[in-house]
Amino acid sequence: MKFEIMRDRLLDGINDVMKAISQKVAIPILTGIKIEVNEKGLTMTGSDSDITICTFIPAEDNGEQIIKVAEKGNIVLQAKVFSEIARKLPTNEVTIEVVNGLQTHIQSGKSEFHLIGSDAEDYPVLPDVKDDYLFSLPSDLMKSIIRETVFAVSQQETRPILTGVHWEAKDGGLSCVATDSHRLARRLTVPEDMPDMPFSIVIPGKSLQELNKILPDNSESVDIVIADQQVLFKTRNVLFYSRLLEGNYPDTSRLIPSEYKTSIVVNGKHLLQAIDRASLLAREERNNIVRFSADDSNVIEISSNSPEVGKVEELLEATDLSGEDLKISFSAKYMMDALKAIDGQDVSIHFTGAMRPFILQAVGDDTILQLILPVRTY
């Protein structure tokens, strides 16, 4: 194997596949990056068994030659060392050559590195994913869906199914739900080409966070292929495989209230800033609790109290307020996460009582829903 490549393009590819590589793997070869080159270009693969990322760098792009292939072949190189070397090479021209089976020479300018690779035949084969369930979403919409849901997955492994986001297709729409049993985030969307057959899968939150780092910030189409135990996300030059979580996701639809006793419309950005300030004095050991009260005067009071530190009170004008007077307490962190997901728009908050879950939605947009369980303090 021998080829020349532009260092910046090589680094982009390495940075993508490194997101799938862990030093804590049962199969030692998975601490390496698999490199395959032929006349079409270079494919690099990284995996930790749960996530597999393949990135392809074409030999030519828009008439510009990126890779000159002298001899095709493959090798597995230690990921950590290879990425450090690529990052510190002195020029943008890099030559990589494998001689005597596994001896790998990397040359750039006057620098030359000699690495001992591993046999690519020993690298696990990619999951076999058939296009039975295939649909597409624009990349920027995918990133929004991830941002608006993944923060609410459980960090506890006691109920592994809750560490993932539940993607469910039915009636032509896609529902994405995450919950850690204290809060819930839901995003609804209607993809153009949903498969006719309904499906229900749970994608690990960790996988979606890594995918989010790779997806481009544009409307480029992302193909989503669902298989038995795997989901595959395909962009122009990247394949991202993730295992799916096994088990039944709880029915969360019954948690979402349909009747409300108090409804408030307020500027989301101002509310976020007020809760952020109130949380400065909220006691850590009480899970960062903030109090929220409203009466018929269209003014909300946000407060927090820490006997050791002091207290804070802040008044915020609501755009609209209807229903019963209300006093409620909740986690400042959960509330701020929910408001960030709604992203600074005017927010409708619907309450059904001091100890019942309440929901937040952007005014005039029911595609994003955030639900939070209050905390007993009053």
Rank of each mutant, 00 (worst) to 15 (best):
Q229T: 09
I96L: 14
Q361K: 15
L239E: 13
L326M: 09
Y378V: 07
I29W: 11
G46S: 04
L272Q: 14
A59S: 15
M142A: 09
S139L: 01
V266I: 15
L321S: 15
I146E: 04
G117W: 09
I27A: 07
T104H: 12
N38A: 07
T91A: 07
R286E: 12
D366H: 13
Q156M: 05
G323Q: 03
K2Y: 02
V81P: 05
N267M: 10
D193P: 03
F292C: 14
L245T: 02
A278L: 06
V312A: 08
V347C: 10
S22C: 11
Y334K: 09
S263C: 11
N298L: 13
E284K: 13
I5T: 04
F240P: 04
K110M: 03
D193Y: 04
L42D: 08
S293W: 00
P124Y: 04
D223Q: 15
K327F: 01
L141G: 00
A282S: 15
P90Q: 11
T31E: 15
L326W: 13
K333L: 11
V125E: 08
K143C: 02
S293Q: 05
L188K: 11
E301G: 00
D343A: 15
K213C: 07
E60N: 14
D217S: 13
D228H: 08
D128L: 06
N92K: 05
A332Q: 03
A318Y: 00
S331Q: 01
L30D: 04
D131H: 08
D251Y: 11
F199Q: 10
K40V: 03
V363D: 14
N287E: 08
H114P: 00
L89N: 01
D295I: 02
G73V: 05
S83H: 07
K110G: 06
D276H: 13
S242C: 08
N287K: 10
R286G: 12
V129Y: 02
I342H: 11
M44W: 03
P58M: 03
D366Q: 12
V202S: 06
E168V: 13
I368L: 14
N237M: 05
S258R: 12
E259S: 14
N92P: 00
K327H: 01
I342L: 15
P191N: 07
F233Y: 11
M1K: 07
Q230E: 14
L137E: 05
A152H: 05
K234F: 00
V290P: 01
N248I: 07
K170N: 13
G117T: 04
A79K: 05
G101T: 10
L102W: 08
L162K: 08
I75R: 01
L215E: 03
T104E: 10
N38T: 09
V129Q: 02
S297M: 00
V25S: 11
E157W: 01
I66L: 15
V347M: 10
R254H: 12
A338G: 12
E39A: 10
V363Y: 06
L321P: 01
R376L: 02
F233I: 05
V375C: 02
T158E: 12
